[in-house]
Amino acid sequence: MVPVEFYFVLACVMFLIGLFGALFRRNLIMVLMSIELMLNAVNLVFVAAGRSIGNVDGQIMVLFVIVVAACEAAVGLAMVIAVFRKYGTVNTDILRLLRG
């Protein structure tokens, strides 16, 4: 069988790609999508680890992560719409009111 570490490496790579996108993209929606990518990397670790230690708790955690991801996407996208309506842009370089 495939060693469980391989899955962890793949998840790490995915997480890093997602992190890169979340940090360096300047579009709010792209940032949200990169976060989805990171959440999926975590899901992969849950499933693979659960499979490796021999119980289904990992799969159950994935279900909860998916729930949280759905909520995050809904609220996040609602905020993107609100921001766009107010400022006419979703570029994070322009939206820096809170940075002072």
């Binding site: 069988m1 495939v2 060693p3 469980v4 659960g50 499979r51 490796s52 021999g54 119980n55 289904v56």
Partner: peptide, 10 residues
Amino acid sequence: PTGLGEGSLD
């Protein structure tokens, strides 16, 4: 390396 087969999901 821990194989997925050993001690894995029964």
